[in-house]
Simulated scan of single mutants.
Amino acid sequence: MALAIFDLDNTLIANDSDYLWGEFLVDKGYVDADHFREQNAKFYEDYKSGNLDIFAYQRFALKPLSQQSMETLHEWHKQFMQEYIEPIILPKAQAMVDHHKNNGDRVMIITATNTFITRPIGERYGITELLGTEGEIKDGRYTGEVAGTPTFQHGKVTRLNSWLAENDETLEGSYFYSDSHNDLPLLELVSHPVIVNGDDKLLEIAKQRDWPLMDMRQ
């Protein structure tokens, strides 16, 4: 039995859930449209270029959560899943998840996106083991701050190492599926790195290292 790790955005789904959540908030009129969309787009470009300030971004992303009750947020997320996520679910990604499960592998998602957005998406694929950026919660509400280490770049390795120690697991024979050069620290750590619809920077590195390439969108 091996550990099969999946990135989420642009790997298991055909877009970025964090960015789409921002679009959802704008489209529904839950945030100031012009300011939020401008900031959301800027942070997304920073992410793609590898220059994202993860704490600044997460405070931006978590702020709308801090302004609503959990009940309201969960109702919003149901709409979000139906209207924005279901259309970008990838059958080929589901088949790969099921393949690992059938082989007896332990399947998990590691994503930089916060767990409020991503946990229901993981469950949609039948994945309950998830490491994502955690929003701080006090008195039953989000505070708008980050709790612990964000699962971004080297933070994914830090959080995974803690999980491995807590669960008496190893990375022997492990897989990691990802699209992003931001995930190089973890791709270099696993036994079997697999590039899924990789960005240009990651594809160049993958070709140099002869890492396998996969297209989940065909």
Rank of each mutant, 00 (worst) to 15 (best):
G135H: 04
A206K: 10
R209M: 12
L131T: 06
T128C: 07
T149V: 15
G135T: 04
E145Q: 13
N161C: 11
I121T: 00
N161V: 10
N161Q: 13
T113D: 00
R141Y: 10
A95K: 15
L171C: 09
Y125A: 06
E188D: 11
D105K: 07
E166Y: 08
F176T: 00
T170Q: 09
G144Y: 07
I195E: 03
E188M: 12
E169S: 14
G122Y: 03
E123R: 11
G132R: 01
G132F: 02
K156T: 02
K138Y: 03
L189I: 05
H99C: 12
T158N: 01
P120T: 06
T149G: 06
V157M: 04
T133H: 10
Y142W: 07
V146H: 01
I121Q: 00
K201R: 15
L164N: 04
H100D: 12
R141I: 04
A147R: 11
L203T: 08
L189K: 14
R106Y: 11
D210W: 08
H154S: 14
T128I: 05
T133C: 10
T111A: 04
R141V: 08
G135W: 02
N114F: 11
T143K: 00
G173W: 03
N103M: 15
T113Q: 04
F176R: 01
N114V: 01
T133M: 10
T143Q: 00
T133A: 08
M96C: 14
F152C: 05
R119L: 11
T111D: 00
K138A: 04
E204L: 15
D200G: 06
T115V: 09
I195G: 05
G132H: 03
I205S: 07
G140S: 09
L160Q: 03
R106I: 07
D200L: 15
P185R: 14
G144Q: 07
V146L: 05
T115G: 10
T128V: 09
L187A: 07
V194Y: 06
N197I: 09
D210G: 10
H192I: 05
A147K: 14
D199T: 09
I127P: 01
I110L: 12
S178L: 08
I117L: 02
R124I: 01
G135Q: 04
F152Y: 15
T111Y: 07
D168V: 10
G144M: 05
R159V: 12
L189D: 03
Q208V: 12
L184V: 15
N167E: 09
V97A: 10
V146S: 00
P185I: 13
N167M: 03
G198M: 12
L160P: 04
